[in-house]
Amino acid sequence: MNKDRAEMGTNVSVLSNENVETIKKKKRKSAFSWYLFLLPSFVGILLFMVYPILESFRLSFFQSNGTIENFIGLKNFQLVLTSKTFWNTVWNTFFIAFCQIAITIPLGFIFASMINSVRRGQNFFKVVYFLPNVTSIVAAAMIFQFVLHPEMGVANYALDAIGLPTSSWFSDPSTSKWGVILLAVWHWIGFVIIICLANLQAISPEMYEAARIDGASRIQQWLFITIPNMSGTFAFLLITGWIGGLQRFNEVYVLGGPNGSPARSIQTMGAFIYERGFTGFEFGIASAATYIMFIIILIFTFINLKVSKMNL
């Protein structure tokens, strides 16, 4: 290979001036065609990413309903940051996301480890456990409204039948968040399991063999080989989980409408933005809220990156 290169090099140096000229031209032409390859994507970036981000930054300093605009400085930010409704949505969003992540990652990892170690039916379990994740969250929310119905739902019936306390779920502001969390765990656990399984199978079997020779038990192997090797995967799930969780909108919209009923108990930041922007057409306030949300997500992603790097 290197020898070939060297030969080609000498060939080039032998070439006459004319040929060098055309090679240069060809190079320029090829550089140009590379930009053509990128054209669709970068038109998209400019039009649908860069422009909207800048424009919503500008809008956040204006009072606007889409046609009439007044510059009002930081008033929108002031209004959002002093709004109890907004902070309530921040709390709801974080609470639901935290519980979803804290339950789903450990549970999903345990199930992935179990699936990885059973001899028969691995593929069957994979398919079954991932099924909730392929159904749209909107349809899932629709079903869960009935599954978790306090009087005629199958969940309360089952809880009651095995002697556990039942819950009022979506009909009471104090329990409605748990309904959303249950739905979120049910929908996300398949994803966590698939990601964990893919990475579990990437751990080299030699490590386990060496540990077995040293007399390590199954549990010890799991604690000291499997879990440390999975820290990158947990970091990935943590970050994607938080990003997804902070943007939660679809299911709470179906379950509680734009204002997250009952009593705004399940209204998320996304729902607040939708309510202000598209039911009230207060574009300035909604834009300020999206920027605050955007910054919260960025800060949180960086914290997560830092925390997970420290573990690695």
Binding site: L47, F48, M49, Y51, P52, I53, E55, S56, L59, G66, I243, Q247, M269, G270, I273, Y274, G277, F278, F283, A286, S287, T290, Y291, M293, F294, I297, L298, T301
Partner: peptide, 14 residues
């Protein structure tokens, strides 16, 4: 890193 929410309103007006 850019979510949909901050782009929602400008894309709508666009």
């Amino acid at each position: 890193m850019i979510p949909m929410e901050p782009r929602l309103i400008p894309l709508y007006t666009l």
